[in-house]
Nucleic acid binder design. Structure first.
Lengths: 347, 347
DNA sequence: ACCGGGAATTGAAGCGCTTCGACAGATGTA
DNA sequence: TACATCTGTCGAAGCGCTTCAATTCCCGGT
């Protein structure tokens, strides 16, 4: 492997000069800079990551902690991860992939060893076990998702409460008075994952303001589960004409089931999905939906964490970047799955 | 941050002794070892990754290069990635996430900078642009997927040719004489992704041996695309009674469509899917399928690469670990979507 | 002709760890 | 008793880079 010293010799300058050419932290005269750059190119020099990390106490790596479980939103997780990786590269950072498996220990390990300069955590629970460590940690972190208490934390997420409200509003405007929220798998609620609970809260809040009745039912991601959930909903509330579906994997089954039962979409039943746009448009009916801005979330997470890394990097003398919670506003796209409530459903 | 030297002082030994306790590369007497371990615990010492990498020229990081595109098998990719991460941790390694975005340059960068000790590449094309670099590279690599020429490469993949054969065999045994292969999106074939082409080859080969007629049609991942593909297949070959489906995202639409057209599964049409088991079991009909062993692939990739890393690490004096191509044998699980061919389809 | 000051460059001191050779002391061998 | 062997520990060199303080050089001002 070519080293800095070899480049310096080849270019006829000192090692520090090469270093400054690379980092741009000091002015280097044009001719010298060009000579050094030429040597770098000719020798195919690449700086050694370990040495750089040791000398500068910056690894230029961001750790991304993903959930190991795959009971929800797999494509969303994937999109977030890829967006994080892509955006990180735009900031000359690499991404270290951690799984939830190791839990808080992973945070400690990565932070303590200087393997990464910062962390991005996904799948945050309301009372996440990793939070105490983050508070003590000297390294910046950004959460994708919202815990119960966000003081001292920087977070990005879709505004799921607003999302819930928006869905209800849309249905209410169309005249629906009885709405069912088909939620995530029960396990998701049992873990107290914030987004699921915030969605319910938003739905309930706006519904009560608008005089809409709401029934919330969790639902596993299979055809049978959906069949059961649907029949139970309709049994309990036969007048239900609007559905808000948060578990993307039952959208297909749901459409099949409604069709089988002779309920036309949107004539007899309207559906608003909370899912990525690709999912909304690839079924037999293009679904009215609130998009989950996965890429945006991944991107913002990196963009929020970078200034903190840089502030911490200047031997801590850059004053700290303030924490903030960034809730992305939901956007509802009307497609073919929502329409006026059937006459029977009206007063 | 606590350093090795501080641990040494605290334990009343030299730095090298602490280092040897940590690595186990020299014998340390029991009392000394315990004293050091205690100091490590009490001080909460974590070795600095950069310093370690610099001194040992081992980063204990494996780079995983994922495709950026998401036009196929997203959950499979995700499972592979998570399995890689999990298995890597069992070997005390971390995983660096790279996207296909940067292409071959990423390989160069990571390998050249010593950021990672080894690479695992996913989504390998038949004539992958990254291969030449791998051949020159001093660092070991494992491919998940098969390029056209595997000399000097270590690869893991499902044996898709055997998978194709197995699907045909199963349908042929049930008496089906006309079979359609519903393939991946056209773009996948245009990229010359090995697995898709190998599946076709396997299907064709066994079909011709068994006197089964095969029609292969690519299919995008949407309901409309599936509708079009299905009607074209049935128009061209009205006698088609068996379907092999490789694009997992059209399985739902396909079942809906067949039902709509009054074709019962499996009475009128049999379906063999090539997809993860979770997908096969969560639709309205449990599908006979060949599983894509995503986790296994991720796990094996790590297990194949580790010995190479270790051999390379012993300052290259461990003799090189031989390359090998590991094709995982397909397993077909019979579920509810395949049955005897309808009478009309028989001689 | 002299000096102050900025611009460009360099030397040297680490960053925290691994590892090699050396060494003291205990143990075995003749 | 003298010598070779092991075992357990240590000192010091060095991995490749960053960065600070110091140095050189050149310029304009007086």
């Amino acid at each position: 492997m070519v080293t800095l010293a070899e480049v310096a010799r080849h270019a006829g300058v000192s090692a520090s000069t090469v270093s400054y050419v690379l980092s741009g932290k000091r002015t280097i005269s044009r001719p010298t800079r060009e000579r050094v750059e030429r040597s770098i190119r000719e020798l195919g020099y690449l700086p050694n990551a370990g040495a750089r990390a040791l000398a500068s106490s910056r690894s230029n790596v961001i750790a991304l902690m993903m959930p190991l479980r795959t009971d929800m939103y797999v494509p969303v997780m994937m999109d977030i991860a890829l967006a994080v990786a892509t955006t990180a590269r735009e900031h000359e950072q690499d991404v270290l992939l951690l799984t939830g498996q190791e839990g808080p220990a992973a945070v400690r390990r990565v932070v303590g060893s200087g393997l990464a300069d910062a962390m991005i955590l996904m799948d945050v629970e309301l009372h996440d076990a990793r939070l105490p460590l983050l508070h003590e940690s000297p390294r910046p972190a950004v959460l994708i998702g919202l815990p119960a208490d966000t003081t001292g934390l920087t977070c990005v997420d879709l505004d799921f409460a607003a999302t819930g409200r928006l869905c209800v509003e849309h249905l209410a405007e169309l005249g629906h008075r009885e709405v069912a929220l088909v939620g995530e798998a029960a396990a998701v609620y049992e873990r107290h994952t914030g987004f699921a609970e915030r969605t319910i809260a938003g739905v309930r809040e706006r519904a009560s303001e608008l005089g809409v009745r709401v029934l919330h039912r969790p639902c596993e991601g299979s055809y049978e589960a959906m069949a059961g959930t649907l029949s139970r909903i309709l049994q309990e509330r036969p007048g239900t004409s609007g559905f808000i579906v948060q578990n993307e994997s039952v959208l297909g089954p749901m459409l099949s089931l409604l069709r089988q039962q002779g309920r036309a979409v949107p004539e007899d039943a309207s559906i608003v999905a909370i899912c990525p746009d690709e999912v909304a448009t690839q079924g037999s009916v293009a679904l009215t939906s609130v998009a989950i801005p996965a890429r945006e979330m991944g991107r913002r997470a990196v963009e929020l964490v970078m200034p903190k890394v840089e502030a911490a990097g200047r031997n801590g003398n850059g004053r700290p970047v303030p924490d903030r919670v960034e809730l992305l506003p939901p956007r509802l796209t009307v497609r073919a799955s929502t329409g006026p409530a059937p006459a029977a459903g009206r007063p």
